[in-house]
Nucleic acid binder design. Structure first.
Lengths: 72, 72
DNA sequence: ACAAATTGTAAAATATAGTTTACACTAATA
DNA sequence: TATTAGTGTAAACTATATTTTACAATTTGT
């Protein structure tokens, strides 16, 4: 009994939030302690971050996860 | 220039939310289309789910991610 | 136009999320 | 007490997040 829900895709507003805070990908990476390449990949939707990464970002931007990531 | 933030741990309230909705781990697994063992592991804090998993759970429980997961 | 800063990308390696199968353990309940 | 539903766990496996190094492309400032 396995209902397959359609392939769920993830969207994000990282670039907008970075702009709002005037911060570079590298700075963000340093702040939340991860690589710049990972930030870049997440921002470009290349992969789905862990919820820990998402929470750290939300913390940094002083907002809710839902304002950063959403299901398309 | 790499500031190491202490090792961040993840907490969750899945069990409470399951109780509130009176649903089993297996049912939840089926609803959000993942294995019962993964639900169990996440609930017991054995690993950190992806944000997609977290969003699917929040959707199912009709609540915000922050009500399900938090940084300890 | 030039230089510097920022962003995009790629390959190889490592870490960890998530699946599958299978079985033990712990309720709940007839 | 015996049966059943629900949960805990383990090993082997697959998928993918994340790092590191390195370099190309693009944007920004002078």
């Amino acid at each position: 009994m396995k209902l397959k829900g359609g392939n769920v895709e993830l969207g994000n507003r990282l670039k907008e939030w970075r702009a709002k805070k005037d911060i570079t990908q590298e700075e963000l990476a340093i702040r939340i302690n991860m690589s710049r390449q990972s930030i870049n990949a997440i921002e470009r939707g290349r992969f789905v971050p862990s919820i820990l990464t998402a929470l750290k970002m939300a913390n940094f931007f002083e907002t809710k996860i839902e304002n950063l990531f959403y299901i398309k």
